[in-house]
């Protein structure tokens, strides 16, 4: 029973890592930039939701606050691309990396300045409730996290494989020039991908904040999610999720079975192993061009 509960809570954590990793991969695939602020996007999305819905702040109904927060983060991602990242076009990769790292710092301290540095948790309808399955007692919030992640993954899958815009996004990420030749407005598509990255980050943040307290420096767990994305093979959406789940599951079990401290090392140790034995990641989808 203990192990099963560990499994469930690991799964819930893994879902959050997976969603942040998904944001990394989405943006990387579409724009070839790594958004190191993705974890901070998540944190900021969570704080916006807390600000909207907690009784200490605005106290808006949770079910209204969530879509509003997603919308705000989406708009934030879109405008960020239009106003800043597009101007960086043609600069070296490292410039974009430094820019996003700096952006992470800005978000972290902005959140601290606005909402203080103390941990806060989201007043969600799931908080503190339990689901009993026989002898098994699960937190409702953990079940909700897993459920929402599955739902979001399914929605994203449908979006990318069935909708015209989704397929165009894939096309633009696989061959930007050809997408341009086909009349796909690549720049707008890239901004939309940043918006999508913001929305996914907001969902991850809401899930994270509803199952525990969050403070402005929580965004640093983006590094763990980055490891998840690398494990999954940077560039593969299912890989990112599975990488997140692997890390989420390994952590509690390492804490349970190994001496103290190892659970913090475990995610990066796995990343190293993957990089050594399968440098392209577990689910890479690179393809060489035929001439």
């Amino acid at each position: 029973m203990d192990l099963l509960q560990l499994f469930i809570s690991g799964l819930a954590n893994g879902c959050v890592y997976g969603l942040i990793a998904l944001g990394f991969v989405l943006i990387y695939k579409a724009t070839e930039a790594v958004n190191f602020a993705q974890g901070d996007f998540m944190m900021f999305g969570a704080f916006i939701t807390i600000w909207l819905t907690n009784t200490d702040y605005l106290g808006i109904n949770f079910w209204i606050a969530v879509p509003v927060a997603m919308l705000i983060m989406g708009a934030f991602g879109y405008l960020l691309d239009v106003a800043i990242l597009r101007k960086m076009f043609g600069q070296s990769q490292i410039a974009v990396v430094i820019l996003t790292i700096a952006l992470g710092f800005i978000l972290r301290f902005a959140a601290g300045a606005i909402w203080a540095h103390e941990p806060q948790s989201l007043e969600s309808p799931f908080a503190g409730r339990e689901v009993r399955l026989g002898e098994l007692v699960l937190g409702l919030e953990e079940v909700a996290v897993v459920f929402v992640t599955i739902l979001l993954t399914f929605a994203l899958y449908l979006f990318f494989n069935r909708s015209k815009l989704g397929i165009a996004m894939q096309a633009a990420s696989q061959n930007q020039l050809a997408a341009y030749y086909m009349g796909i407005p690549v720049k707008r598509i890239q901004s939309l991908v940043w918006a999508l990255g913001g929305v996914v980050a907001a969902v991850a943040g809401i899930l994270f904040a509803s199952k525990g307290a969050i403070d402005p420096s929580t965004g640093l767990l983006g590094i763990k999610a980055f490891a998840a994305a690398v494990i999954g093979g940077f560039g593969s959406l299912p890989g990112a999720l599975i990488g997140g789940l692997i890390i989420g599951l390994v952590e509690p079990f390492a804490a349970y079975g190994l001496p103290a401290g190892y659970s913090q090392i475990a995610p990066y140790a796995i990343m190293l192993l993957v990089l050594i034995f399968r440098p392209a990641g577990l689910f890479s989808t690179t393809q060489k061009k035929k001439v």
């Binding site: 397929i167 696989q174 009349g183 796909i184």
Partner: peptide, 26 residues
């Protein structure tokens, strides 16, 4: 006016059908 570029420049990971359909994007 459409440009069929040098060296094909197809979308390698999309299906053939999706590639063709994208031609009608506009």
């Amino acid at each position: 006016m459409v440009h069929v570029p040098e060296g094909r420049e197809i979308f390698p990971l999309l299906s053939v059908g999706e590639n063709v359909a994208l031609g009608a994007y506009v």
